[in-house]
Every structure is written in structure tokens, then in C-alpha cells.
Amino acid sequence: MNLLPRRGSLRRQEAAAGWLMTVPAIALLLVFLVAPIAMAAWVSLSNWTGIGSPFASGVSSVGMRNYAALLTEPGLAQQQLGESLRNNLYYVILVVPLQTVLSLGLALAVSRKRLAGRGFFRTAYYFPSITSSVAISIMFLFVFGNAGVVNAVIGYLGAHGPDWFDNPSGVLHLVYSGLGVTQPPAALADHGLLGMPWWEWLAGPSVAMIAIITLAVWTTSGTFMLIFLPAIYAIPAELEEAAIVDGANAWQRLRRVILPMLRPTLFLVLTLGLIGTWQVFDQIYLMSQGNPAGTTLTPAYLSYVESFGNQQWGQGAAISFILFAIIVIFTILQRLMLRDRGAT
């Protein structure tokens, strides 16, 4: 007779207890994460009209038709998706590097031990990040208004400021016309992607979008500065001292010592930046609603108006899944680019 339970059954009991402990967490994940995503995926494949449950008997699958209307069939839906992707792409291309460089610069500046009033500067730079985005958006509407501060400064310098939020011209188009190219070459005008000619893809962010980009960089740099700061403090002082002894100048120390040490943090900041910028919504909702002429439309905002405004819930959900795919692809690309050489 052996009174002790056998080893295997003890393991089994432990495993059962373990599962029991994790049930609340799993349930929460199921209800608030997995189920909504699954529901949205179903909606993107269905003809749900927004009335009652999407799983009710009257709702049926339409296969990939919602995705086809957005990706392959010429029409307004496809054109607006193209526009929104172009606008958002320029937004990402400008905001992510600018906010990363700016926040790193701010972090390096306020981490210097000899700087007087470090606490004050840290708080000042972080302030925009903790202020309500609604308040900041409204403030920028005034700052970039026709008679706002920005145009007053431009006027003081002798130039005439643009109607920022009413100007749909792409800044690259303005550059081309400055170089004497006002009519698109036939190759760029007659061919395109997603219902939009290449010439329009090459328009660059509109003047209105530049104002929103400025806002985004100004707002988020403080947050990322806060992420860089502890990482900079964690770099052992001996490393930098050794570099100084070896005769490295300030630029070489930054390039060869500090930046390599910050690689994991840089990865985090770039990833968060990429995801956040592809999902830009609240500034668009508050400031421009996609105007002027659709040049500040973004996929996240388009998904919202297509669903809640136009009651095309399937297409709205499909846009969000297309956006999801784009974010995943960009994050993987960035991971490949920042991967430690030598490591797998």
C-alpha cells in the first residue's frame, strides 16, 4: 500500500490548479479581446447593416465582397482607401523619424548631469503628452488659423502664410511646380494603384496634413523622451569614459557607444511610433474630418465614418483589417531592419 499519490497524478493536480488560477485572466482576454476581434472579422465578411446582433439569422456572409469593393473594384470606396493610405503613409514617414530623433535629442539634453533645472525641462517636454488631445487639437486650430500665430510669424518675415486647414495642395506637388513641373508626365497620370494615379500618390502630405504632423510630433516627443531617459541613465558611465580615453569625440561616442546601447529602446520607440501613427484618429476627427479634399483622411477615420456615418459596417470592418495587416507588415520590416547583426 502506498499512501502517497503517484508523481504523475500530483503533476496533473498541479496543472489543473494552474489552469483554475488562470481562468479569470483567460476569460477576460476572451471577452474583451478575442471575441471582439472575431466579431469584427465576421462583420467584415458579412452584410450586417448595424441592426441587432451581427450573428442574428438575417445576417449572411458575402465572402470577400467587402474587401473586393475596397481593393479591386474601381469606385469611391477604393479611391478613398487609396487616398487615406497615401495620406497616412506620408504621415508615418514624417512623424516617426521626426519624433524619434526629437525625443532622443531631448532625452540626451535633459540627461546631462551638469544641466541646471533638469526637472523643469523634463516636466516641460512631457507636458504635451499628458494634456488632453482634444485641448491640444483645438489649440492647434487657432495656432494654424488664417490669422493665427504661425501665419503672424510668417507675415512678420515678409511672406504670406497659407490657409493651413483649407489647403489641399500636396507639398511635393508644390516642390515639383517650383521646379517647373506642373503637368504630370503621362506615365504617372495614366497608371496608378487603388484607383489613384501615381502622380497623386507622389503628391506628398497636404499643407493641412503638415499642420497635423507638427501637432503629432510636438505631442508625442515628450512621451518617447521619457522612454529614452532611463535607458540612457542605464548606460554605465565607464563606457563613455573609456571612449573619451580612446580619443572618441562627442559624435563618435553617440554613434558608436550610446546608440548601440539604446538599440532595444529604439526598437520599442519605433514600434510604438509606427503603430500609433498608422492608427491616427482623434486629431482627424477633431480637426479636419478628412478635409480639405480628402487629404487628411486616414484609414482609422475612414473606417469610423464608413461604419457609423454611412452604415456600411462590413466595409468599415474590412478597412480596419487592412490597416491591421499594414501595421503587422511594417512592424516585421522594421524588426528585420533593426535586428542585431550576428544574432539570428
Binding site: A27, V34, I51, G52, P54, F55, A56
Partner: peptide, 25 residues
Amino acid sequence: RLTTVMLSAGVLALAAACSSNGGFS
């Protein structure tokens, strides 16, 4: 595998709960 089973069970349960009160059909 157990996790997968639990996940799908949860989604199905939720789907059933939602479809049972589809009053506007």
C-alpha cells in the same frame, strides 16, 4: 490544444448568446 479548445468554446458561447436575442430580424 486545450487553450485552443477553450478559446473556440468561448467564442461560440458568445456567438450563441448574441444570436439568441436578435430581435430585429
